[in-house]
Design a protein around this nucleic acid. Structure first.
Lengths: 116, 116
DNA sequence: GGAGATCGTTTCGGAGCCGAACTATTGCGC
DNA sequence: GCGCAATAGTTCGGCTCCGAAACGATCTCC
């Protein structure tokens, strides 16, 4: 475990990163979209619409719309499951991987700047 | 400075906290609203509409609307500046302080759970 | 006290997201 | 094959948010 984080530091970290996201991006993702994006990139596949909806505790249309929006942005892609054609599998994209990586860098940088 | 944070850990932290926010709250704040809320609670007063807009790089109506929404939620309050009645000062509320504190606890808890 | 600057709010048309209900397609068990 | 379950997508009215522009109130400076 990395060193402990005090509540005050935790809040400043959250503030600073949110601040960067607001300042740097034109149109920003909703929390739900962010949760979907990070789940796809951090947890092991496969990812289905139903599975994501259940995991996040939201309805299916929420996931469908999130995939629409983020697909349009090139952050991830959809593909029908050939072994069970009812399913849609969510895949990562190069552009999405870069965006997630940038977010990680922001969090690391803001964490490094925290006062002791 | 607390111990270093690797990019992979940083992303998991962000994912886990976002996940909690999505699961636990009915209606969630936008990133902009979150940035306004945390700025008011973490940075020293006074906070004006103009100042917040400049700091976050957004237009004034964005701040006005954020204050409308979060004021309705009881997370902060507005008061006219008596020394310059053009200004509106943004104040903290008890309910807002509790909400911010809860967020801090979530971040700390999720940080503590990170794999080394 | 009057002109102009400053500040927050409101208005406007447009866009995105919401949940509930419904549809269409596919797989499964009989 | 046929019904039934499961899956993703779509439609609906309603709500929030968006940026640009206009507005009203207030202050400052002469």
């Amino acid at each position: 475990m990395p060193g402990g984080l005090r509540p005050s530091q935790a809040l400043h970290l959250w503030h600073d990163v949110t601040f960067d996201l607001v300042r740097d991006s034109e149109r920003d993702l909703t929390n739900r979209q962010m949760a979907v994006l990070l789940t796809v990139y951090l947890e092991p596949p496969p990812h289905t619409v139903r599975g994501l909806a259940r995991k996040l505790g939201v309805t299916k249309p929420v996931i469908t719309r999130a995939l629409d929006t983020m697909g349009r942005l090139g952050l991830l892609s959809r593909k029908r499951d050939d072994t069970d054609r009812r399913n849609v599998l969510v895949h990562r994209t190069l552009e999405g991987a870069l965006a997630v990586e940038r977010l990680g860098d922001i969090v690391v940088a803001r964490h490094r700047e925290l006062q002791p």
